[in-house]
Amino acid sequence: MARRHAFSVFLASLGVLLAAASACAEAVSVAALRLSSSGPLFIAQDRGHFAAEGLEVTFRFFTAAQPVAVAVTTGDADFGVTGLTAGFYNLAGKGALRIVAAQSADVPGFHLSAYLATPRAWDAGLRSLADFPGRSVGITQTGSTFHYMIGLLARKEGFALARVRLVPLQSIPNMVSAFKGGQVDGLILPSSVALPMIEAGEGRLLGWVGDATPWQLGALFTSGRTVADRRPLVARFVRAYARGAAEYHAAFNQRDAAGRPVAGEGYAALMPILEKYTQQPAARLATGLPWVDPAGRLDVGDIRDQVAWWQAQKMVDPAVDAAAILDLGFVEGHRNVPR
């Protein structure tokens, strides 16, 4: 009886000790989407990289890119990871946001986003990426990544974007139903949605965005205030994130000699983490695992291009300075840095 009592006292004091230790860990909240492109984040969390930096990370999940940026702006989250939109740059340009590392990028050989044509538009001559002028394309919103990807295509194929009728439909399900109903001629869709439609004959594949127009799709960012006031914290966070990115890259971004995806080191161990956070089955995830730089390095020149393009579209305030929204001091060796 006495021994049992002593044991429970021991357990209780252990509990107090543990609580004290975790109280030392700094609480950090991160806004993100439940997408595999945020994989480095999930891996860093579940593999204990954040904890190793003394960070206690909690996630706040959203369903669109915009709220992620807003959450960081308002201070509801300390960090955000999501796609780069015109709205993001407008917020960032007002000093509210700083990009500190890369998220995913569209690169050749990685089939993230598909250009699709409806069978009817296909029959009517929408057979290649150069055939978009004079046709309608569904997007989620003006200023979204979908909007930008069409803009990139227009630039690459050398047609005026104004010759494509962009139809804002607010959500991907709306885009899919408008596409199936023949209300639009073409779409850009994530591979997880696009592939089943192609198999079912509901859409014709015209190509992949990564092959046609590689670009820096997303980024890890924080608020201007956090960068200024809590710089060491940002450095610790980015370090842990980059470790996650390296593991993600090693496991999911490997290709064989023929360019076919192969399972890399740690694939089997890390896939359940992605399954858990994205709430998607592995089979579905495997078809569209995005490319993520192993060190979280950004394509800096591309981000400057993005800002300039949006400004040319009069959708980003001309006063926004691309250099000022980037803080390149947390990751070594960013790519394509303009001199």
Partner: peptide, 16 residues
């Protein structure tokens, strides 16, 4: 792509 609603919505999307 035109209309006050579309404009307000776009301004919201663009954070203007």
């Amino acid at each position: 792509d035109t209309g006050l609603g579309a404009f307000v919505l776009m301004a919201g999307n663009l954070m203007r």
